[in-house]
């Protein structure tokens, strides 16, 4: 709660600093009339072949959705890791280990299945 105020203030400071840099460079720089060629999207000297709004490979989608699932699984490991030593010191080490071992076994099964199904192949 107390920490959110500095976060907000710092975000404001950084955003102001950044916008100021962009603004200053737009004032100080020379203003030239640009030619038609300069206004084209940069391409290695040739006229552009295709628009930038082309389709994106479905692999990006697969990567993103697999990332979400694994990210959530990892986030569940964080509270586990945080309390692990307390459980161990209370004498429940084996219990808390097997709780997560089952979870990690499911994680590994999913990962192996995806590798075997070639969902993670890029070519």
């Amino acid at each position: 709660m107390d920490a959110i105020v500095p976060i907000l203030v710092l975000t404001l400071i950084v955003a102001t600093f950044g916008s100021l840099l962009v603004y200053v460079s737009s004032i100080l720089g020379p203003k030239k009339h640009a030619t038609h060629a300069k206004y084209m999207p940069y391409e290695c000297g040739l006229p552009g072949q295709e628009s930038s709004k082309t389709n994106v490979s479905v692999r990006y989608y697969l990567t993103a959705i697999l990332f979400i699932v694994f990210d959530i699984e990892i986030l569940f490991m964080y509270p586990w890791a945080l309390t692990y030593r307390e459980f161990v010191e209370a004498g429940h080490g084996a219990y808390i280990f097997w709780v997560m071992f089952v979870f990690i076994a499911l994680f590994v099964f999913g990962l192996v299945w995806e590798v075997r199904s070639k969902a993670l192949e890029w070519d």
């Binding site: 697969l62 959705i65 697999l66 699932v69 959530i72 699984e73 569940f76 709780v99 089952v102 979870f103 499911l106 994680f107 099964f109 999913g110 299945w113 995806e114 199904s117 969902a119």
Partner: peptide, 17 residues
């Protein structure tokens, strides 16, 4: 919690399939 692990296993399998 363990059922949730199972659910999280089903999601990627379904997506990939």
């Amino acid at each position: 919690f363990e059922i949730l692990g199972l659910l999280l296993l089903v999601i990627p399998i379904g997506t990939v399939a």
